[in-house]
Design a protein around this nucleic acid. Sequence first.
DNA 1: ATGGCGGGTCTAACCCGA
Length: 263
Amino acid sequence: MKIASWNVNSLRVRLEQVLEWLESTQVDILGVQETKLQDTNFPLEAINSAGYDVLYSGQKTYNGVALLAHRERVVEKLGPMLYPVTNLPGFDDTQKRILAATIGDLRIINLYVPNGAVPDSDKYRYKLAWLEALYEFLRIQLNDHPRMVVMGDFNIAPEDADVHDPKKWEGSVLVSPRERKALQKIVSLGFCDSFRQFAQEDGQFSWWDYRAAGFRLNKGLRIDLILASDAILEHLTGSWIDREPRAWQRPSDHTPVVTEFTF
DNA sequence: ATGGCGGGTCTAACCCGA
């Protein structure tokens, strides 16, 4: 089974790209971030017609997440998406950034972690508070669901190897020590960064700035991650970044990341 | 050092992202 995560930067603009990519890659479960759509405007029929069940939690203008599961390859074999969660428990937040669901005995969590603006700003403090609430949520969830995939736009590059120019980025938001520690704390609950479970070439990123020819010059960051819990570690068979959609006309600034499992 | 691109919507001397 192939599980993928893609920040599409407006599902309204990127819908055809998402459907084309799913058709060509045969990805089974996809977490989408930054739909930027109210639920009343969600393209439910188009996604259902493409063969996917979908859950979504959106708002106007900002944020918004969705979770797609292929009807024949996932839902009919393992079961429907159940027990959705769209908020971090105990964290008062109007921003739609999380969507969790259970498929069979697999708990899937799709995230759009706050950006954080600049270190020590209000948005940065919100990011750290959000990550702390996420830590508590995942700690509880792992007890009930040892088989778990946590994916999304983490807005954190875990290591300097995930940054095109670590010197230039040092201390900036997306790489600053406090947010990296918050991510490490979450991973330490019992996850691995699936991409790093396999030998990878240097300079592989999942986001490139639209400005200053970021993609052409490969000035990017790897901030889109798929974490796998220890209980499913043995089922990992591969993890990669598909750069192709970033080269398409009118692309998202993120490209999809994929992890494959034996189940 | 700055701004650059590309989404959004209150279409702007706009806001936001990463």
